[in-house]
């Protein structure tokens, strides 16, 4: 099994498109860091001009943690695209390249092959989020320093600098879980298709479409929203609440895990019965 995973990882990291994702994350993160460094304070001043009539602000809110938080907020739509670019190609790429028939002549079960491919794709997704965490947190903290963080949700939350690192680690950890769900969705679509474009566009379309429908028709869809995996894509924000809502966190983790299992099971069932023609 480990040999199979290694082979799949070799295939992933042999392709140049894998590194496009890392390069894209790097460019976006650096651009955001520069942007917040130059415009962060004036933006905060503008946003708080009303509240500053009642309060004095003492201290610097533009710091490494704020920059990392903004990066996290901005990338939740980009990372699924970058994840599905690789995981959406895991099965369909073989079909498209005509290598499946050759591959399946080897003495390995289809189940093992699917699991190995999924684990390799999952490793890539985790690595991408870890890379994002690393280049967001470390340089931001080194260059802009530590500081308190302001988070606007239903209340205005001010977090002390010494109360933040674990929240970011938890948020990035949760991000890894949601990207696992996204990876399993694109992986499932990849098993249905014989070309790579379909699963990649399909994954993004599903996420965007459900998100838009959920927002526009919120009152109509309210009963099913708690059961949609897209509802919880931004639930890393739960780690930036003053009093942690463990029920919501557990619910979000459970839904993401259940969807991952469902997508993976469907992939296994479908792929085992699939007639390989290419």
């Amino acid at each position: 099994m480990i040999t199979l995973i290694n082979i799949e990882l070799y295939k992933i990291f042999k392709r140049s498109r894998t590194y496009i994702a890392f390069a894209a994350v790097f460019v976006i993160v650096v651009a955001l860091q520069i942007g917040v460094h130059f415009e962060g304070q004036s933006t905060l001043d503008f946003l708080f001009q009303n509240i500053k009539e009642s309060f004095m602000f003492q201290g610097d809110l533009v710091n490494g943690y704020l920059i990392t938080f903004i990066i996290l907020s901005s990338l939740w739509i980009h990372i699924p695209i970058l994840v599905s670019m690789v995981t959406g190609d895991m099965i369909s790429g073989e079909a498209n390249g005509g290598t499946f028939r050759l591959l399946l002549t080897r003495p390995i079960s289809r189940t093992k092959l699917v699991i190995a491919k999924f684990l390799a794709g999952w490793f890539y997704s985790i690595l991408l989020v870890a890379f994002m965490a690393l280049i967001s947190l470390l340089p931001s903290l080194l260059i802009f320093g530590k500081g308190d963080l302001i988070v606007m949700k239903t209340t205005i939350n001010f977090f002390s600098a010494d109360d933040l690192l674990w929240r970011f680690i938890a948020a990035f950890g949760y991000g890894m879980l949601t990207m696992t769900t996204v990876a399993s969705l694109s992986f499932m679509l990849s098993s249905f298709s014989d070309n790579s474009i379909g699963p990649i566009i399909g994954t993004i379309s599903i996420i965007i479409a459900i998100t838009i429908i959920s927002s526009v028709g919120e009152s109509l869809l309210r009963p099913v929203l708690p059961y949609m995996f897209t509802t919880y894509l931004t639930s890393w924000l739960l780690f930036f609440e003053f009093e942690l809502n463990f029920t919501k966190i557990i619910q979000a983790i459970s839904v993401e895990l259940i969807y991952t299992l469902i997508f993976l099971t469907i992939t296994l069932i479908y792929f085992r019965r699939k007639d390989i023609l290419s």
Partner: peptide, 20 residues
Amino acid sequence: GSKIPQKIAGGEFNSKEKEL
């Protein structure tokens, strides 16, 4: 009467509140 635009650094997903 003090109010703040919610989208300062990431507001609540699906939130209908534009201002706090």
